[in-house]
Design a protein around this nucleic acid. Structure first.
Lengths: 133, 133
DNA sequence: TTAGTTGCTTGCATATTGCAAGTCACTTGA
DNA sequence: TCAAGTGACTTGCAATATGCAAGCAACTAA
């Protein structure tokens, strides 16, 4: 007996379809996940820095998102200090490559949502983003 | 008596902050909205066509999203036929400009989510997308 | 010794999703 | 003419996710 479901779509583990947009949204499609990625791209690395962002992410959601992003290989968690223990979160290459998505959102937001802070001002805050890599 | 709240941030009506990413996510940050935009970019125009997409969007959510996107000026609704009434949804310039966001997601998905259908195959389905405008 | 910081977890109310079914105005086929 | 669709939704309700407040453990600094 052949399992049709498995033979028809193996793509995008547990995704809704094999569409790269749908699969990306399965992971990133909510109000908070990409904001965490944004903060990481801006050079923030600690839990408390993410909390301090102006959007005010609830702490339970932040904790859950960090776990999910780590499980998805988008970021890595490391202790950067024992006594007292302190953790740093950093993007992997997979996470850094989301920059193009965020970049497109910045341009779209700047063009169509009045009052959003312009890309140049954002780039001025970034450690070493401007270069294309 | 001065209202500090209003004087400090007028940006991004009702948004969580003035960040273009946060403001974009206020509108687009969920699992379904960008899939509807994707379908529109692929040339789909009717309610039932959106429903037929492989992700299987629930009808109540589809109806709600279409209203929100229309209210946000991302798409326009028009009757293309009286008796029986039939509606067509089409992207505005604002909506079409989301192509760059979707495009970045396609590239990211293709690169990091195995089994997602490749951009060339998607472009082959599109009416007149390939050109840069 | 007391207060403060970091990185969380827990509880609970509210909001959003997802599924199924129903509705209304038609059209099409028998 | 009458039953069975079809397109575009709406409604009800259970399941899941979000948002807020509080709590907590392990430290540090005063």
């Amino acid at each position: 007996m052949i399992d049709r479901k498995n033979s028809v779509k193996l793509a995008c583990v547990d995704g809704r379809s094999a569409c790269p947009v749908a699969c990306s949204l399965d992971l990133l499609g909510d109000k908070w996940t990409l904001l965490v990625v944004r903060d990481l791209l801006l050079g923030k690395t600690t839990y408390s820095e993410f909390q301090k962002s102006p959007e005010g992410i609830p702490t339970n959601i932040l904790a859950e998102r960090l776990k999910r992003l780590q499980a998805a290989g988008i970021l890595e968690k490391s202790r950067y200090q024992e006594r007292p223990v302190r953790y740093a979160y950093r993007l992997t290459a997979k996470g850094r490559d989301l920059r193009s998505v965020l970049s497109a959102m910045i341009d779209w937001g700047n063009k169509y949502i009045p009052g959003t802070i312009p890309r140049e001002q954002i780039e001025a805050m970034v450690p070493q983003l401007p270069e294309n890599s």
